[in-house]
Design a protein around this nucleic acid. Structure first.
Lengths: 348, 348
DNA sequence: CTGAAAGCGCTAACAC
DNA sequence: GTGTTAGCGCTTTCAG
């Protein structure tokens, strides 16, 4: 297809030297005379020579490419993570092959397989929702390719480092705050099965325990995909109950925001009738009316940290050493805004 | 580094046949006996053989990887485009190498170079801001690697297909609408130099011409990066003028939204004192108060179309044929909401 | 300081 | 239906 590329051999022939020398000259090896180096560089430039990374990768058994698999790219949180990953990757001279599982486990597996076949030097992955433990990642371990998981992780893969936020604490703080504001019946929009959702739910439960508040099972609402549509739908469902909640903890801002819209349409006041707290602190939360309280997560930093970890592991693998797996837990922060600042707390 | 991978040769030796046969068996070639095929497949599975794409790519001179360069990933528009790209790529069994220029021309050039060295089969790019014509892309053309530009494009590269939205019409409709609502002095937040910004500005000017409304140079506000911060800042600047505008056309929703916040804080009413229209129709526009009128762009579709075009060109390049470059222009739609529905139109 | 030669893992003529 | 062989373009011993 493409016009014939110019290769080391072409340069070598033209200069009457060996490809080995040309290769070394281009790579700025110490043992090459300035003279040859200059001639090679000049010719390479003149013929606009471009090294073939494929060939180098095949030979060196390393690609300087890392694979990234995320569930969904149209998502402020994940795009921020990717940005963090790419920032570090760029500095370290690594390229990124990006895949999106679309929350499908099958696609995630297929993508991982393809990345493995591409001989990526490492993999960064956030698991798709669902009760799967990511065992297909063992193929990477077996091949000696480092894997670092972030955000939605699995505990069933030995020897894998992870970067997560403290989902438990975040949820615990959020729900405790709601209770302190006087909420007695706090509904929860529970995201689909994933480590994050699991830990946040524990935080929800434990906050209730701490304040000795009973948990009403009827207020636990399981969502399938954390979309705006679901938030809207479940808000209606929730407020139509015989004893509607006076607080809502939504594990995703998207749902929290749509719920707010639905609730306002229904004629309820926020936070007077129901206080609402989200998770992720998307920029939008501070903008809507009333401003939405939310738990913020350091997405960009998560990407950076994950990539750094991976680079270390790649380095270690090169040296045939093994690092003991690390788990980095980043702090969440509860941003309290009007949607939870209830006068109820006074009348309490 | 990695444990020794199992190769075709390993399978061949174990089975006492040649690598060629193994290769053919795995690829389901017609001229292979069912017997051998079965044996090969079985062994491959047992040893969990994985093909080395690197080697195949080097040999076949095609990688089944496409490069994508965008200015910024934390951006609803661009992530939606990427999603469109990846959806089509996945179906066609292509991988995506993603780069982010961060609106830096130098980084864009470096990324393009790296992608070229990786021998991607094609490139999809949206140019970084600034008055540059993307001439570095000629390297791809020279190498016979197809390029398709989208959104922010350049007209100075011959033989390159493009996918854009009708920025001119979008802006023209938006500004015409503002004028019809009674606005007499319409400020514009002009995004940094780029094809999109250029065309939208033309639409702004021509709408004024159509209605024989003079353009006040003082109302043309040049932004550096279309951020929320800028929107906020320039809103203050704009309203502090001796004759503040009664309309605002912002080339980015981000700025429009922050401007709304600033303007409300200053005590002005929207749209009574000033009507506001944005561009991009981010989900947020329909949520804020008042809902923001905005010009929507079909981002996902843009990604799909661009990838389809690229696939065609890759196919053509393989067949040594050349397609005449195409430019696909997608329609924009003006979503009219409360931020521009001014009572002024009645008193007119 | 430079060259010869082997080989990374795969595919595609070309034989038989 | 299967094997032989020659590379794809690069890096890296090993020799000199």
């Amino acid at each position: 297809m493409s016009k014939k590329q110019v290769t080391l051999a072409d340069l070598a022939k033209e200069l009457g030297i060996s490809t080995a020398t040309v290769s070394r000259a281009l790579k700025n090896y110490p043992d090459i005379s300035d003279e040859t180096k200059k001639r090679v560089l000049a010719l390479a430039k003149r013929l606009s020579y471009r090294p073939n990374s494929l060939a180098a990768s095949l030979r060196k058994q390393e690609t300087h490419i890392i694979g990234v698999i995320i569930p969904e790219i149209i998502n402020h949180f994940f795009s921020a993570v990717i940005k963090g990953i790419m920032a570090v990757a760029y500095e370290a001279n690594y390229r990124v092959m990006l895949c999106q599982s679309d929350e499908s486990i099958e696609k995630e597996i297929a993508d991982a397989q393809a990345l493995l076949d591409s001989r990526v030097d490492g993999l960064l992955i956030s698991l798709a929702n669902g009760n799967h433990d990511g065992l297909h990642l063992l193929d990477f371990i077996r091949a000696g390719t480092p894997v670092v998981m972030f955000d939605k992780v699995s505990d069933n893969i030995p020897n894998v480092s992870k970067v997560v936020v403290d989902d438990y604490q975040g949820a615990f703080k959020a729900v405790s705050h709601l209770i302190e504001q006087g909420c007695k019946r706090i509904a929860v929009f529970r995201s689909p099965p994933a480590s994050t959702s699991h830990n946040r739910f524990k935080g929800y439960i434990d906050a209730h325990k701490k304040f000795e508040l009973p948990v009403d099972k009827g207020l636990i609402i399981d969502c399938h995909n954390s979309t705006h549509e679901e938030g809207y739908h479940f808000a209606h469902y929730m407020m139509a109950q015989r004893f509607p909640p006076d607080g809502l903890f939504s594990m995703a801002d998207s749902m929290a925001i749509s719920a707010m819209i639905a609730i306002k349409e229904l004629g309820y006041q926020i936070p007077l009738d129901i206080a609402i707290c989200g998770f992720s602190d998307s920029h939008i939360s501070s903008i809507i009316d009333p401003p939405l309280s939310s738990v913020s997560q350091p997405a960009f930093e998560m990407g950076q940290k994950a990539m750094h970890l991976l680079l270390h592991e790649i380095q270690a693998a090169k040296n045939e050493t093994t690092l003991s797996p690390k788990t980095i837990v980043l702090n969440t922060e509860l941003h309290i805004r009007a949607s939870t600042l209830s006068p109820k707390s006074n009348s309490n």
